[in-house]
Design a protein around this nucleic acid. Structure first.
Length: 647
DNA sequence: GTTTCGGTTCTTTTT
DNA sequence: GAACCGAAAC
């Protein structure tokens, strides 16, 4: 076991935080100051002090962050860190709940509903109550509303009040739908994302013995991106850490950009009040960006109220000022970006060194077309997540119904693939099956087949064989094989008939099958599948790592990443800040500004802000766009203004 | 009564 | 590209 040289590997700020004595710790880590490094070294420090890795709980905001930290910790300390509990809050909750489900009235194989699933349950209620369409809020809006209430720990009725205010007639109807939704979940033995956290907290409250066990186990709790935790998550941390009180939270209130999903940056602001003896460490030495970029970053965040004072201190040498490009419209912006990328490449940058960031996915449409025209290699970090695509969910539904006979959503999805079968038929079949479908029961499969329209009955044969094999050949340890057979006997043809781009979709499914290999059983895969967001991140490490491509991404998805050159497009009011977001809450402007700050601080050497003057609408009209308030707030002398002349 | 199909419209952010 | 709506087809 080699020694780790903490002194030399860390600067004094980082060193102090990583090797701090026990007790609560608040680490305020500004952008690019080595936050992850500090956290990883903290883990190494604790393990080296002889603490068993299993007694550390490391909570991160994304799967990506968890993976990255584990990898880096393993490099540093060796395989002993393998036993570390590391993951998102939802993962932790899921892991505990699978173990203790029975103690709070769930079966251990409960289903996790993703957004789509939750939406279809709500939609069902709306249809039954004849509330669909009309003036009534759409399923997604209602789901968001319920979720908001859950994450803020408020009553749904209060959330309705806050969001819809006066609509008193609708209030009761929305509450009815909410109750339907809750009942549907209970009957299906399912949880949505928020339930994972809520039930975990409930488990802690109702079963002090269970809580005590985890409190004892986790000698240290470390939380990354603490500014993005919501009320429930903060409470989970407080509860689990209550015994040993070695709670270390790392965060940057400047980078709190998830309040729309219940994140409450007051958690980080009030941490010293809740932990009176907390030691506060500040990381302000920035290793990422040139001083000119940091000046812009410091200037643009200065306008925000109520924040910890932090100033990014540069370590790098002077370079050149960021560019402010004044452009006529979106088309010209696209041509300018293509042009600017060419310039950067002449300066020695590769495509992979450059990212184009924007507020919302649709802001990049024109640019995508332009880049494709000019054959500029680019990768879009898409809004559509891998596991939410129709074909992926279709294939997963077979596995779901096999492993979980009571999974009605999976049942309905699978049946819906057959000709002449829609919602209605599926629902009736489910009722006839008596609320559970045991695919290993030959007779039940026969009864189901008999119920289908003639055309469907013919195609069902192929699937019937797959269903039968699951039990007969003990495929529960090989979910990939089940999906593979389903693909070969049925879904490949189905995809060819249904999707224009069926080749790509079938490729996706092959990738999915490969992915299942890392799970011991089909059940283990299913237990995690709803919590996985995209395989893209995985694929990137492998397949795409070799290709040199420009990266297009939303600012949210760029969080925690960095590039030598960053181009921000549509830096205009209405677009960034998003007019829509500003309408929602009075605090939205501050959050949009933080988002802008996140965008700016992704850049290492080159930063370019694009400000088009007009936006062309679909009907050929022209809308004038004032420059983003976040751009006009920056002292002009910090920027190099250009008005590109493009042919 | 259901399903399917074709046309239309809109697109913030995500565990 | 997907979600919605209305109309045609089964």
């Amino acid at each position: 076991m080699h020694a780790i040289d903490f002194q030399n590997a860390l600067n004094p700020e980082q060193h102090a935080a990583a090797t701090a004595p026990d007790g609560p710790l608040l680490v305020l880590a500004a952008a690019g100051t080595g936050k992850t490094r500090t956290l990883v070294y903290r883990v190494a420090f604790l393990v080296r002090r002889g603490i068993d890795a299993e007694r550390l709980l490391l909570l991160t905001f994304t799967n990506r962050a968890a993976r990255e930290m584990l990898e880096r910790a393993r490099e540093l300390v060796g395989p002993t860190v393998g036993g570390l509990w590391a993951g998102t809050f939802h993962h932790m909750a899921n892991r505990m709940l699978r173990r203790h489900a029975a103690q709070i009235g769930f079966r251990p194989d409960y289903t996790i509903l993703d957004r789509d699933d939750a939406g279809s349950l709500v939609k069902r209620s709306l249809t039954e109550r004849k509330l669909a369409g009309r003036e009534f809020p759409k399923p997604e809006v209602l789901i968001a509303l319920f979720s908001e209430a859950a994450n803020r720990g408020e009553k749904v009725s209060a959330a309705i009040e806050r969001r819809f205010g006066g609509l008193n007639g609708e209030r009761d109807k929305i509450l009815d739908v909410y109750r339907d939704y809750e009942r549907a979940k209970r009957e299906a033995g399912a949880m949505d994302f928020d339930d994972l956290l809520l039930h975990c907290l409930r488990l802690f409250n109702e079963r002090p013995d269970v809580l005590a066990r985890y409190q004892e186990q986790f000698l240290h709790v470390l939380v990354d991106e603490y500014q993005d935790t919501n009320l429930i998550q903060a409470e989970l941390v407080d509860r689990v850490g209550a015994r040993h009180r070695n709670v270390l939270v790392v965060g940057d209130d400047f980078q709190s950009i998830y309040s729309w999903r219940g994140a409450d940056y007051r958690n980080i602001m009030t941490f010293p009040d809740r932990y009176r003896d907390a030691a506060i460490h500040r990381l302000e030495t920035n290793y990422r960006s040139v001083p000119e970029i940091l000046s812009v970053a410091n200037a643009c965040i200065a306008g925000n109220p109520r924040q910890y004072r932090k100033t990014l201190r540069p370590t790098r040498g002077a370079h050149r000022k960021p560019v402010l490009a004044r452009i006529r419209d979106g088309g010209e912006q696209a041509r300018f970006v293509a042009d600017y990328v060419r310039t950067l490449r002449r300066d020695g940058y590769h495509y992979g060194d450059i990212a184009v960031l924007y507020r919302a996915h649709f802001h990049s449409m024109e640019l995508q077309m332009e880049l494709t025209r000019h054959r500029v290699p680019h990768v879009i970090v898409s809004g559509v997540r891998f596991f939410e695509q129709a074909h992926v969910k279709d294939v997963c539904s077979v596995l779901r119904i096999l492993a979980r006979p009571r999974d009605e959503l999976a049942f309905a999805r699978l049946l819906g693939l057959f000709p002449g079968v829609g919602d209605r038929t599926a629902q009736r079949a489910w009722e006839k099956m008596g609320g559970a479908f045991d695919a290993s029961d030959r007779e039940q499969r026969e009864r189901l087949r008999a119920m289908l329209p003639a055309a469907a009955r013919e195609q069902w044969k192929a699937v019937d064989a797959v269903l039968a094999a699951y039990r007969a050949e003990e495929l529960h340890e090989d979910g990939g094989e089940v999906m593979h057979r389903f693909l070969k006997t049925f879904y490949e043809d189905y995809a060819r008939r249904t999707f224009e781009n069926h080749e790509r979709r079938v490729e996706d499914i092959h990738e999915l099958i490969l992915y299942t290999a890392r799970f011991e059983t089909a059940e283990a895969f299913l237990s995690d599948v709803a919590l996985l967001t995209n395989l893209d991140a995985e694929a990137e490490n492998g397949a795409r790592a070799g290709t040199d491509a420009l990266r297009l991404s939303t600012v949210h998805q760029a969080k925690g990443l960095e590039w030598p050159a960053v181009i921000v497009i549509w830096a205009t009011d209405n677009m960034f800040p998003s007019a829509r977001a500003l309408k929602e809450t009075p605090d939205a402007e501050a959050e949009e500004r933080r988002l802008f700050y996140v965008a700016v601080t992704r850049a290492k050497n080159e930063l370019c802000l694009c400000v088009p003057e007009v936006r062309r609408t679909r009907d050929g009209g022209v809308v004038f766009c004032p420059p983003s308030r976040f751009v006009t707030e920056i002292p002009p002398e910090l920027l190099r203004e250009v008005r590109p002349v493009l042919i």
